[in-house]
Amino acid sequence: MRSVETAFLLLLAAFLAGFCALGLFYYDYSLALMRFPLLAAGGTLVVVIVQVVALRRGTAPMQVGATPAIAPGGERRRVREALLLLSVLPMVFLLGFPAGLAVYLLGVLRCAGETWGFSLAAAAASLGLSYGIFVKAMGVPLPLLPYWWPY
């Protein structure tokens, strides 16, 4: 866990330093514009270094039980579950928001072993929420058509 956290901190340091360098040398921002970002990044980098040193020396307190126990099941199953969950993104962009969310819910619930009745009811409720409440009642302009649709 210590090596993972060190990697995370080094990535964070690269992110902060990289953006500061980008601002100073690529975008050529004035010092007035960069003063506060430099201050924020500099201060954070100092604490990052202190934490990395503490991790190397083993003096940093570790987060006990931060990573929950993994349920029984193979790595492949977990990757499949995560991908299934994240499929909501391609679905809304491929089918439009109300339809995409309803189809997503129907598919994921069926894959989770729910009955057709429950899955269809949940999909209909999602359609009612996204189209009925968000679009019609509250006027939120959810994209109804897929992004690839020729307008």
């Binding site: 969950l85 909501v88 809304v92 928001f97 969310l101 997503y104 819910l105 994921v108 619930l109 989770a112 729910e114 949940a122 999602s126 929420l129 996204s130 968000f134 509250m138 939120v140 959810l142």
Partner: peptide, 16 residues
């Protein structure tokens, strides 16, 4: 069951 329902709410909330 709860996870995909929450994912739908998160998508709607983020967009709205």
């Amino acid at each position: 069951v709860l996870a995909p329902i929450l994912a739908v709410l998160v998508v709607l909330g983020a967009y709205a």
